[in-house]
Write a protein that binds this DNA or RNA. Structure first.
Lengths: 144, 144
DNA sequence: TTTCATGCAAAAGTTTTGCAACCCC
DNA sequence: GGGGTTGCAAAACTTTTGCATGAAA
């Protein structure tokens, strides 16, 4: 996920979503949007602190909740802590259980959409978001 | 998930998997296998403590890791902590993001199998297990 | 008898909370 | 100016670790 917003566009996007804009919030959003992988809260915290040495984890958590509620980012419960995703299109996370690397794949077969539809039909629940992970061994971590 | 093993069968199953059998491990396994829902570690701990008041969380975590490594149970990273699943067949978790209830659905359309296959083909990773969750609002929690 | 699990305790890590000062709108 | 946000601090909660004792094979 490369940066999808210029600074200005990001500010506009936040305002559009009814989020009060602060420098810290911009920094948090930029950290997530500019990352190639799904960052943990600590990783986000570390990056933002380079620009705002006085920011606290509490503020980061606060901001993550606001951004999540607005739909700009999505929390992914992972072993080892919550990570944040910015890809709004449904996709698959493939996780190596040994080295921890995560690869994203688009929902090419429409399987994720199919699962959401299945859930709606069978439970009457109203699907909002989804997460799918395959836990696997990457080639380097596979027993040769 | 109702209990799938008699006490004796469970002991045999643990031995078959190369797990050293202790009374505490049986209790932990029975708690998980006998539960209808996916229990958190604290819920497991609370249940087992009724039989073994001196057991510690450390032992529960230890046991969960052993049972996971053997493939008898599967950890599910959920918002709010890890839960444990005993259903070895791939299935879908539908979670109400407000009240937290979880419903399981079988992989009727073969979507989960399709995702694992997609992951294998596209990444070369060797799929071991999987998790799919739909975050949704249940009828009672839906804004009428 | 040897090896490994348990219990106890402490520590590391994650997430939440309360509140006064401050900043965005 | 008003109300929401920040920083600071403490606390609650989850998970990991070290070690002496005890139990399983």
């Amino acid at each position: 996920m490369t940066a999808r917003f210029s600074r200005d566009a990001l500010v506009r996007e936040l305002r559009r979503r009814g989020i009060r804009v602060t420098a810290q919030r911009i920094a948090v959003a930029e950290a997530i949007l500019g990352a190639a992988e799904h960052l943990t809260v600590q990783e986000i915290y570390r990056r933002v602190r380079q620009r705002f040495p006085h920011i606290t984890v509490g503020t980061v958590y606060n901001t993550l909740e606001v951004l999540t509620a607005s739909g700009l980012i999505q929390p992914l419960p992972f072993p080892g802590g919550t990570r944040y995703d910015t890809d709004p299109t449904p996709h698959l996370n493939v996780v190596c259980i040994r080295c921890g690397q995560v690869r994203d794949l688009p929902d090419d077969g429409g399987h994720l959409a199919g699962l959401a539809e299945l859930a709606r039909r069978r439970t009457g629940f109203q699907p909002l978001s989804q997460q799918a992970a395959i836990y696997a061994l990457c080639p380097s971590c596979s027993p040769s």
